[in-house]
Write a protein that binds this DNA or RNA. Structure first.
Length: 289
DNA sequence: AGTATCCTGGAA
DNA sequence: TTCCAGGATACT
C-alpha cells in the first residue's frame, strides 16, 4: 500500500515522463474517481509534479493542478513511445491496459507521426476505487483538506523537537499515532511496524511514555526504513507498482510487517500479530518492550 | 478516542 | 461462503 517511498517513486516517474507533455483529452470511465473542473485538463501542459505526504499534485500551465491520492490500490501507469524498451511488457499490447479497473485515461498529445501510431497515455487504475483525482486551481490546491491538515514529514521537516512534542502530547498508543497523517505525514502500516521494530519499541506503548532516547531512536528508525524504501523503489506488497508497471523491492526487507509466526531476525522469537486501530500490527514480543 | 465506511480480490 | 487487506474520513 503506497506510503511515502512508494508515492515518491511514482512522483519521480511522473516527473520524468510527463513534464513538458500536453494532455490532449481525458476519458473518465468511472465518474466518481475524477472531480473538479475537468475541462481545464484539455490541451494543458504539465509543468511539474509535487508530493506532500502520500498525496500528489500535477501542476499544469493554465493555473490549474491535478491532485491525486492513490490510497491503497491506485496505480498511475505511463504507457507510450516515451517509455524505455525494458523488461517491462507493453501493457497495452498484452491487453492489460486499459483494463477492468482502469477508471481514467489521460491521452497525451504526440507530435511526430511515428509516435501517433501507438499514442501516449497515463492510466489510472484502482481496484478498490478508494483513490481520488481532483482538478482544482493551483493557488488553492493545498487548501484541500487532505493537504492542509498534513503534519510534518520525515526526511523533510520532522525535527526531533517537533517529533518529541507530537509524542508527548498524547497517551495514545505510539503505532497508530505514527500513521496519523495530521500528526506526521507519509507513514503507513508497513513502515510504522518496521520502524518500531528497529527502534525496539512496543507498538502499544503510550506515545508520551517514550524516553528521549527512545524518541531519538524511533525518529532514526523511521528515517532509516523510509530511506531504504526510497532506495529500492517502495514495497510491492499488494498492488503497488511504479509508473512503468515495475515492482519495488522493499518487501524483501520487511523486518516484521506481515511476518506473523516467523522468527524475529534478532532473537528468533515468533513475531506476533495484534490489531490496533483496526490495522494489523506486527512485533517481536521479546525485542520490543 | 474509537469505529464504520468506501470497494474488490484473494485466501481460508 | 466468510473474512481480511488498510488510507483517510465521517461518524458516534
Amino acid at each position: 500500500m503506497p506510503e511515502l517511498p512508494e508515492v515518491e517513486t511514482i512522483r519521480k516517474g511522473l516527473e520524468k515522463y510527463l513534464v513538458g507533455r500536453t494532455i490532449e483529452s481525458v476519458e473518465i470511465r468511472l465518474a466518481k474517481m475524477l472531480t473538479g473542473d475537468i475541462k481545464k485538463l484539455e490541451m494543458a501542459k504539465i509543468q511539474g509534479v509535487r508530493r506532500f505526504g502520500k498525496g500528489l499534485i500535477i501542476d499544469l500551465d493554465n493555473l490549474y493542478s491535478i491532485a491525486i491520492h492513490v490510497k491503497m490500490t491506485g496505480q498511475l501507469l505511463y504507457q507510450g513511445e516515451g517509455s524505455p524498451k525494458s523488461s517491462v511488457p507493453d501493457l497495452t499490447k498484452v491487453g492489460l491496459l486499459p483494463g477492468r479497473h482502469t477508471h481514467v485515461i489521460f491521452k497525451l498529445k504526440v507530435e511526430s507521426e511515428k509516435l501517433k501510431v501507438k499514442g501516449d497515455y497515463l492510466f489510472y487504475n484502482d481496484i478498490r476505487q478508494f483513490g481520488w483525482i481532483k482538478v482544482i486551481e493551483t493557488e488553492t490546491v493545498r487548501e484541500l483538506d487532505f493537504f492542509k491538515s498534513l503534519g510534518p514529514e520525515p526526511l523533510k521537516d520532522l525535527t526531533l523537537e517537533k517529533f518529541s512534542k507530537i509524542l508527548s502530547a498524547t497517551k495514545a498508543p505510539i503505532k497508530p499515532l505514527l500513521m496519523e497523517q495530521r500528526k506526521i505525514a507519509g507513514i503507513g502500516n508497513i513502515y510504522a511496524n518496521d520502524a518500531l521494530y528497529l527502534a525496539k519499541i512496543n507498538p502499544s506503548r503510550p506515545a508520551n511514555s517514550l524516553s528521549i532516547e527512545e524518541i531519538k531512536r524511533l525518529l532514526k528508525a523511521i528515517e532509516k526504513v523510509l530511506t531504504k524504501g526510497l532506495e529500492v523503489g517502495g514495497a510491492s506488497e499488494w498492488q503497488y507498482v511504479n509508473v512503468l508497471g515495475e515492482s519495488g523491492g522493499y518487501q524483501n526487507f520487511f523486518q516484521v510487517y506481515g511476518k506473523v509466526g516467523k522468527p524475529c531476525l534478532i532473537c528468533g522469537t515468533m513475531i506476533e500479530r495484534i490489531v490496533m486501530g483496526g490495522r494489523g500490527t506486527f512485533y517481536c514480543p521479546k525485542c520490543q518492550v
